[in-house]
């Protein structure tokens, strides 16, 4: 199943002033995989996604993407290499329309693909097409999440980083979003690195998983193994499902 290594993170450290949020993280994502990272609130998951994108900079360790060390590059340069992120909090541009948000997502893509890509995003999320002229700030939480993912896809990424796409959404909508993520991976071959607190759904969806505690990876393995692991069940699945 796994193809060639797409993302190799080794001994990664990152800090916010005096706070060390990542303390030596190793992660591998192979081409074509869905890999998930689970962990409690404040573990450092969002920091890892942002550090991959150069915000904040890695204070030690290395990040290789498609064999190339990207840890020293500026954020906009990293994003031009085929990485896109749907970040924590969605960060939809509030005073721009849905379509303008999507157009901004296409900043790094060749304009000749724009019409086809827009049609493809609208096919994945028909709701966005209905709201195309509405301002981002007036969308519901679920619609904003769709827009954040759609906007990331408009950049034609080979590696898609998703930060808690299920946060704050109704269970029906969570199911739909996860089904769409599977489709993006299976039908289009986009590699996916998914950060989630919703461990059950994430591990059901992913091929492999990592568990992060206090800025370190404490467990790693095939998603089905983690799902069966008593430690994981106790810490992240208790009470749910």
């Amino acid at each position: 199943m796994p193809g060639f290594p797409m993302l190799e993170v080794r001994g990664l450290h990152a800090r916010y002033g005096a706070i060390e949020a990542l303390r030596g993280v190793d992660i591998d994502v192979a081409q074509g995989e869905i890999v998930t990272l689970i962990g409690a609130n404040g573990a450092g998951k969002s920091t890892l996604l942002m550090t991959i994108c150069g915000q904040p900079r890695a204070s030690a360790g290395s990040i290789r993407y498609e064999g190339r060390d990207i840890a020293g590059l500026a954020t906009f340069e990293i994003m031009r290499l085929g990485i896109a992120q749907s970040p924590e909090g969605r960060r939809v541009f509030p005073r721009m329309t849905v379509e303008e948000n999507l157009k901004l997502g296409a900043t790094v893509a060749d304009v000749k693909h724009y019409d086809a890509d827009l049609a493809r995003v609208y096919k994945l999320f028909p709701r966005l097409e209905e709201r195309r002229a509405q301002r981002g700030g007036t969308l519901s939480g679920g619609e904003q999440q769709m827009l954040a993912i759609g906007r990331a896809l408009m950049g034609r990424p080979r590696l898609l980083l998703l930060d808690e796409p299920s946060l704050g959404l109704a269970p029906m909508l969570v199911k739909q979003i996860f089904a769409t993520i599977r489709e993006i991976n299976a039908a289009e071959g986009v590699t996916i690195f998914l950060v989630e607190q919703n461990a059950y759904h994430a591990l059901r969806l992913a091929h492999r998983g990592y568990v992060m505690v206090n800025g370190r990876i404490t467990l790693a393995g095939p998603a089905s193994d983690l799902l069966a692991n008593p430690e994981v069940r106790a810490a992240y699945l208790e009470g749910g499902h």
Partner: peptide, 15 residues
């Protein structure tokens, strides 16, 4: 306008 509304997100889109 993207930079005005959310500079960090603008960077994440390759601007």
């Amino acid at each position: 306008r993207a930079c005005e509304q959310d500079m960090k997100m603008a960077m994440l889109l390759g601007i």
